[in-house]
Write a protein that binds this DNA or RNA. Structure first.
Lengths: 348, 348
DNA sequence: TTGTACGCGTTATCAT
DNA sequence: ATGATAACGCGTACAA
């Protein structure tokens, strides 16, 4: 299996042009050392030969990759693809390439990807942890090694870590208060697991609002589960085993809401007539589907921009201490939906 | 901006353990040369130190990356995320890491990503071209350089290229014949641009079926556009400017169908009562949304598996000539929907 | 302005 | 079973 793919190197160009490797290297990188004339000559020739710099060699020698690693738990929903786009945009603007990996909400995958990205010596890491991530040892190690690391959305809390996230607690609270203002009193919550900040905080916000308005929360009206459609489906089914149904359900994510819709179909329940739904986070539920799904809007674009900002500050050693940014959510009564992914993507 | 991140190297371990670098290298890679005892000793120590092999150095020295580059046009729909998952699975199973890049349907992005991946010296490339890709020069160059390259779904046709795709023409034909069998005669097509195989072939299939059944196709009932929601929205609006409306519309993609649904809402048209829709490709349109959206199912999983197979064959030089695989589509009358992205993700 | 020498961390080859 | 040496392709420091 010996292959000889003739990748052009600086050496090849140098020999051919009767100059030194260094000259070629500098010329191609627009180093001021080299005269405009030779630069042009070298560039032209390199181009003709189809020269592609060797990332590894460059990386090894310069000890910089100009690359940041990005790990997300999933891409099958609305939220992360939008966020990824925003991160790409911000990173490219600063001349960083992004290497994207998907953990599929699995802690082992996440670990493996972290190691791969570390071995690539990315300049920094952007991570939204998986739902299953409980062992934070690797992150402590990374922290110790000094590699810039910023969490977003799904974060590990602790003074030593940087992150950018939504104020989930307030978000949930907003949603519930909206429901209450609309006239609902019997409210249930399909929650995320307590192990992850999102599940924890949003549930706390739910409880906050209910307490504030002196509304009771039957124990079995808070159902914990994953953050995906399946959890929504199962959670709703479970909820419906009770004799007394709530009037409205707050779901921890948009995906969970989708699952609820599906379950409602299967049970022959109409939304919002029989039971209503409100959720945190939005997505491409088609407007014709539910006339009434309100939600708490997450400032996705701002989050992407901010998290890249923070990371780059760290990469450039401008941030001495961890930064923790908490963005405000906003209530949004659904009208129409614009899919961010279809927006034009600006050039670098 | 001088940073000293102490990345442990083989050398560090070697010195500390009073062995040579080579021994450490071999031990960590389970080379048969090394005795079990020293292997254990070295591995244990390396672990304690948190050693992470340097991808670049390894890559440079071994001239293999064990990595394949993957470029997709978008991730904001159902199709590509599912496909990506299937590709990941297949690639990981063969011990390849995947580096994913997104072109956002922009030819420049695609080019830039290709160069980045080439510079990383990935072992092979998997590409679904952007809607805007017309200049295929870079692919010819890549082909000449001998780097394994396999297109999927959105492909560049030509005997010199390998690809795995759906039989789009037959798919469209199937869809239209289903519509005809259902009783529809007045059928329009929101098509993709002719520049891309998908737009071309699916439109041809549409025409095939109409001709076969002696049904007329008014010129303005074939409307070309992009493959996204926006195109569906605009296309439908344009279609509705005609005096005579079709009974059903075949959309080139699922995303386009979504756009049609949205436009229908805005126009106050009911689907399927006023006008029906059928499409190629499926997605998470909620079952409660449209009782009648049938579609042509694309064997996503098989496609992902196959394309990785073909690529790895090429990487291992087992395929002397380009391979072109065309998978059969299948008509699917929608009942319920299972989101592939939420399926369990098998470990490597 | 151009070139020389060396090192980056790893692996392959060839000894011992 | 273990080790010395030379690459891999490029960038930096310094010399010419």
């Amino acid at each position: 299996m010996k292959r000889h793919r003739l990748q052009i190197t600086l050496n090849d160009i140098a020999k051919e042009l009767n100059v030194s490797v260094v000259t070629v290297s500098k010329a191609l990188r627009d180093h001021p050392d080299i005269s405009e004339r030779t630069k042009q000559r070298i560039k032209k020739f390199a181009n003709e030969l189809g020269y592609t710099p060797n990332f590894s060699a460059r990386n090894l020698s310069s000890r910089r990759s100009n690359t940041i690693g990005l790990i997300v738990p999933k891409i099958g929903n609305f939220f992360f693809p939008s966020l990824i786009k925003s991160i790409y945009k911000a990173a490219n603007f600063q001349n960083y390439d992004v290497i994207l990996m998907i953990s599929y909400d699995d802690a082992e995958n996440e670990n493996r990807h972290l190691k791969t990205l570390l071995s690539m010596r990315v300049d920094g890491l952007l991570v939204a942890i998986s739902e299953k991530t409980t062992d934070i040892q690797i992150y402590e190690t990374i922290k110790k090694t000094g590699i810039p690391l910023v969490f977003f959305d799904r974060v590990i809390e602790g003074p030593e870590f940087s992150y950018v996230k939504i104020d989930d607690r307030q978000g949930a609270c907003l949603a519930v208060e909206h429901a209450i203002n609309t006239g609902y009193k019997r409210i249930a919550h399909l929650a995320g697991f307590k192990e992850i900040n999102i599940g924890r905080d949003r549930c706390a916000g739910f409880v906050d609002a209910m307490k504030k308005h002196n509304l009771p929360v039957p124990e079995n009206w808070i159902i914990e589960g994953s953050l995906n459609e399946e959890a929504g489906y199962n959670g709703f089914m479970k909820l419906c085993q009770n004799k007394n149904l709530p009037e409205i359900i707050l779901t921890v994510t948009f995906s969970v809401a989708i699952g609820v819709f599906q379950a409602a179909i299967d049970l022959g329940l109409k939304i919002p007539e029989d039971i209503d739904v409100i959720c945190i986070g939005e997505g491409p539920i088609n407007p014709f589907a539910s006339p009434s799904l309100s939600c708490v809007y997450q400032p996705i674009d701002e989050m992407g921009t901010k998290v890249v900002e923070v990371l780059i500050r760290q990469i450039q050693n401008l941030a001495a201490v961890p930064e923790q940014i908490i963005l405000p959510p906003k209530l949004k009564v659904r009208e129409t939906f614009v899919r961010q992914d279809e927006m034009a993507f600006p050039k670098r």
